[in-house]
Amino acid sequence: MTQMSYMEAIRDGMRVEMKRDSGVYIAGEDVAQFGGCFGVTAGLYDEFGPDRVMNTPISEAVIVGHAVGAAALGLRPIAEIMFVDFMGCCMDELHNQAAKMKYMFGGKAKVPMVVRTPCGAGLGAAAQHSQCLESWFTHIAGVKTVMPGTAADAKGLMIAAIRDDNPVMYIEHKQLLGLTGDVPDGEYVVPLGKADIKREGSDVTIVAWSWMLQKSLAAAEKLAAEGINVEVLDPRTLVPLDKDAILKSVSKTGKLVIVHEEIKTSGFGGEISAIVAEEGFDYLDAPIKRVAAPDTPIPFSPILEQTFIPSEEKIIEAVKALF
């Protein structure tokens, strides 16, 4: 076990797999000597050399598209897209090519690739560099979507994502890059599709991931002081989704609050709500609540941006409204 940051944990996960499997390589904008826009790949160029850590031109379509071809031939590319907001520039390569190749070809192809990309607001980066867009990807059959919320999960999910034989969107949060935690050494794998109860409780279930997991844990502490015992469940991966863990927790607490940083309309909270309404309606003794960003682009001014981002106060308010 080593204390390290979420960013170091992502890097450690990539390093472990690059050492183990010569077919794993990294390609993206400024990922080589520069170490990536946020420094996530720092040092990997020196460690693994120019054949395995490669700068690309500012060409998102071919960054993701070339990864599809390389993966179909058996390599395991990690394609970095500098901000998840830029996925619009390469969406065809993900949703029509990577995601569908296996199915369209009658099962006779594998596309083991990872698209690594940061999401999230809070840096004053405004409308085109701050979004959370996970529901774009969960709506594509054939793609998995991974959203680590702790340093240990960042490593374990990265290793699992690289080893997975499917296209995986690995979405890290910019606000979490400096978050530290104990991270297991070596080949630490967190299986995709397995939720984690980050805080046990009996009165209400909060389902939250990525940065909102941390906010929900902080809110849960404050609520505990007021006598509300919150269970915080981190699905860790949205596809595959550990539905059973969510239903089990709701069956225990009878109340559900979903917290995400995506805008509310068509956000993944709607999907979780629908699952619980369809399959766990009898467990509920209060309406399901969603805490999400408003349906707006992300504003620049700090006061506006802070108003946009779901806050601890809003989470606390939503929980209290159920009692």
Binding site: G65, H66, G69, A71, L73, L75, D92
Partner: peptide, 22 residues
Amino acid sequence: GANGIVGAGMPIATGAAFACKY
């Protein structure tokens, strides 16, 4: 693969060529 999206084969061929070289 044939491909239903005009122009989508070029990045994939580029990646296949990359794998051949790699």
